[in-house]
């Protein structure tokens, strides 16, 4: 319990700090700033992974709950959605395939072309 509370407090703290930096002029969204700062803090050992692991897993595992309210908001957008249904579906499928194949093929090429490394297992 204490473990999770400490982890959540840290995540909220980094988020608020990121939001603060965003408001004073850094053009990156607050959440992403918080992510980058936390990544640096983890890499430098400033914040030990053990403090955060359980809280982060909790939030990420139940992330679907957090975007239920936005999904419910689609109820007000029926008109836009039906009028733009074709453009949105086409955009979704074209872009999905484009990203999947760009990254998959480029990834395969880079893995084959450059010398292999054996970090596969911990």
């Amino acid at each position: 319990m204490f473990d999770q509370a400490r982890g959540l407090a840290l995540l909220v703290g980094f988020f608020l700090f990121g939001g603060f930096l965003h408001r004073v002029g850094v053009p990156i969204p607050g959440g992403v700033l918080g992510l980058l700062l936390l990544y640096v803090a983890l890499t430098t050992g400033l914040v030990p992974l053990a403090w955060l692991q359980r809280a982060a897993d909790l939030l990420l595992r139940h992330m679907v709950l957090l975007f239920v309210p936005l999904t419910v908001g689609l109820m007000d957008l029926g008109r836009v959605l039906s009028r733009q249904a074709f453009a949105l579906s086409a955009s979704l499928i074209v872009s999905f395939l484009a990203v999947l194949l760009t990254t998959g093929l480029l990834g395969r090429w880079l893995v084959a072309v450059l010398p292999a490394d054996a970090e596969a297992a911990e």
Binding site: L8, L11, V12, F14, F15, G18, G19, P29, G30, G31, V32, G34, L35, L36, L38, Y39, L42, L49, L52, Q53, A55, A56, D57, L59, L60, M63, L65, L66, F67, V68, P69, L70, V72, G73
Partner: peptide
């Protein structure tokens, strides 16, 4: 609902952990 949506912010920060 907004109060739940707000937690997407800390969830973004939490992505640093798997990363």
């Amino acid at each position: 609902g907004n109060l739940l949506t707000w937690w997407l912010g800390p969830a973004t920060v939490a992505l640093a952990v798997p990363m």
